[in-house]
Design a protein around this nucleic acid. Sequence first.
RNA 1: GGGGGAAUGUCCCGAGCGGCAAAGGGGGCGGACUGUAAAUCCGCUGCGAAAGCUUCGUAGGUUCGAGUCCUACUUCCCCCA
Length: 419
Amino acid sequence: MTDLQAFKSDFLKTLRDRGYIHQITHPEELDAAAVGGVVTGYIGFDATAPSLHVGSLIQIMMLRRLQQAGHKPIVVMGGGTTKVGDPSGKDTSRQMLTEDGIKANIASIKTVFEKFLRFGDGPTDAIMVDNDEWLSAFGYIQFLREYGPHFTINRMLAFDSVKNRLDREQPLTFLEFNYMLMQSVDFLELERRYGCLLQMGGSDQWGNIVNGVELIRRVEQKPAYGLTTPLLATASGAKMGKTAAGAVWLNADQLSPYDYWQYWRNTEDADVGRFLRLFTDVPLDEVRRLENLPGAGINDAKKVLADEATAMLHGKEAATTARATAEKAFEQGGLSADLPTVEIRAADLEAGPSIAAIAVRAGLAQSNGEARRLAQGGGLRLNDEQIMDGMRPVSVADVKDGVIKLAAGKKKIVLIKPV
RNA sequence: GGGGGAAUGUCCCGAGCGGCAAAGGGGGCGGACUGUAAAUCCGCUGCGAAAGCUUCGUAGGUUCGAGUCCUACUUCCCCCA
């Protein structure tokens, strides 16, 4: 890595101090540009799912830092590139999405960015564009003639994303092979349209980004820079973004604010400081104080992390509610009406279904068998009472205060409500 | 075009003399210990209340019995042209 100490710009100093920087193509030049005026920078986001997840959060936060430092962020939705699929970091090509599917995903993803960035027409207001706008306009021959000469196969074969596939004897289709060209063209197009001179992304994007930087420098004879973030993993090495409920989505309809809050609350001790720096606006002095809280005091830091991260995405109120719900459920052993609730018809309860069947209904297990095993392992609790027999019938007698509290393990709690 | 090899439990890797619900690992889930943490240890990990049912790329065949043998097909990899 280059000399990160020498930065003069607020932007790069902040990124450095908060832990966002993995690699930069031209650190000194970029630093000078950021001191001298408004830097327009972009990050591209794929539209492979109806929501982004925490894996993308670091990128979103980086755009936020860019804007906070007085520069202009561009959010590029990959409507065009998603049609091709990025082979970086993957062993197998992924399924092709339909155009309609991609459009729907983009519409759903868009809303999240408004929570983190200020959009508008001002000089440092964020804008959002879809690269399908220009990529789809090309004819095949036209694309080849215009950009093909700037890329040699020799070089492309040397990039990790390509090399890994080949080394591992996994097929890399011609379709995917073209992805990096498209991403380079994106950058060039953004430079022409908006004077964009910085592309950021995850470390797996390094090759793609460098290609774009060089294309601009070659074709336009203009400066262009690239910056990547480190690959995010928890201190114990696991990939970020998994929870009991699956992926940690950013859209509230995919993952409730409560579960989102829980995700951050369950951060490993060793990650609290790092995550506070990356995912919240908490000042560095305060972060240092929080991460050094002794012993179990670190839990307070985790709550701050959960509060701040949840408030930024879902709003202050949602964060407060989530915290209250969690504290009631975990620290006081009480009930909170805000816990996830599943409704069941009272008539179904009359039949005295097994607790295993109810657990499946509540989404705590995938099959009766799994639920029974859960019970045998001592992980199933009905109204806080451990139930070892998965076949134990559940009846109206188990309803307390209008609900049945069912828990799988310590953290997954669901309220069953007869209606 | 010719020759050789591979596909295994719907997360991944991976063993499997014709008796196999199928070794082992990773991951995941649960329990204990703690602090809603990590590490460690223990249990579970096809469906079914059960009898039983359905699994080893696809379709047939041989056999009392097939993941295992035969045939065809599909996909992938390697070598030769």
